[in-house]
């Protein structure tokens, strides 16, 4: 067979090869995103995602969406411009959460015996689905950034509240009040994570009384819009094929 001959001999073979490529590319994309996004999120979100006693109503709500909208924006740009596939954010979050759960179960629990109810990851799926659907319906990166980015920030806390609420039940312990999450942080010793490192309930939103989570979520959404734009351009830039010669690339 010469280089100018086709590798397939029929349409059925071409379809089969195409589907094989689909699964290969999907698998490769999934695992590459799993690795890259996981490292990125661990380095930027880190302890806020690791520990229940970091999941507060101010900084966790603010930081986690801002640092996590990055890869979804970039992968959305790639999959939308090249393939019109509105699944970029969902693939990213599926990959991230799979990696997170492997990490939490194998490392945090399997190696160091921190209970899983203390070190479970944050749930980013609601925002991812809405982000993908907005892109599909609007077909506009600007609209997705503004509306989707805001939704990404706003959906984060309510999407996680059913998971963390039981750990915010108060308990009296040796004459002081804790939430159960605080008590987990106190009981399950982290030698390298002293209490003062914990960045929770810090800030100047005191005029909002106890209703700071929505304000934090709005702020997070606004910043997520900006981060979306930035990472969307990263995605487009990385998606260039300048290094490949050919007509249809």
């Amino acid at each position: 067979m010469s280089a100018s001959q086709s590798a397939v001999r029929s349409r059925a073979e071409a379809v089969a090869v195409s589907r094989t490529f689909d699964w290969m590319i999907l698998f490769t994309l999934f695992t590459a995103v799993l690795g890259g996004y996981h490292i990125h999120y661990m380095l930027t979100g880190g302890d806020w995602d690791f520990w229940s006693d970091w999941k507060d109503r101010r900084l966790w709500v603010t930081v986690a969406p801002i640092v996590s909208i990055t890869f979804p924006a970039a992968v959305q740009a790639m999959l939308w411009y090249r393939y019109r596939l509105p699944v970029g954010a969902t693939i990213c979050v599926l990959a991230l959460l799979l990696g997170e759960w492997i990490n939490r179960y194998m490392n945090f629990w399997g190696w160091t015996y921190f209970p899983v109810n203390f070190c479970f990851p944050s749930n980013l799926m609601p925002g991812a689905i809405v982000l993908d659907v907005i892109l599909m319906l609007g077909g506009s990166m600007t609209l997705t950034a503004v509306v989707g980015g805001l939704a990404w920030g706003l959906l984060f806390y309510p999407g996680n509240w059913p998971i963390i609420a039981p750990l915010h039940v108060p308990v009296e312990y040796n004459g002081m009040m804790f939430t159960l999450a605080d008590l987990q942080g106190y009981h399950y010793v982290r030698t390298g994570t002293p209490e003062y490192i914990r960045m929770v309930e810090k800030g100047t939103l005191r005029t909002f009384g106890k209703d700071v989570a929505p304000v934090s979520a709005f702020f997070s959404g606004f910043v997520s819009v900006i981060i979306y734009f930035l990472w969307h351009f990263f995605g487009k830039w990385f998606n260039k094929t300048d290094f490949i010669s050919g007509e249809n690339v």
């Binding site: 507060d56 509240w161 609420a165 915010h168 108060p170 002081m176 009040m177 939430t179 605080d182």
Partner: peptide, 18 residues
């Protein structure tokens, strides 16, 4: 819906203490 049902199930929650 899940947020509303959670609030119903856990009517008393407090912020993290710091």
């Amino acid at each position: 819906g899940s947020m509303a049902s959670t609030n119903e199930k856990y009517p008393v929650t407090t912020p993290l203490q710091a």
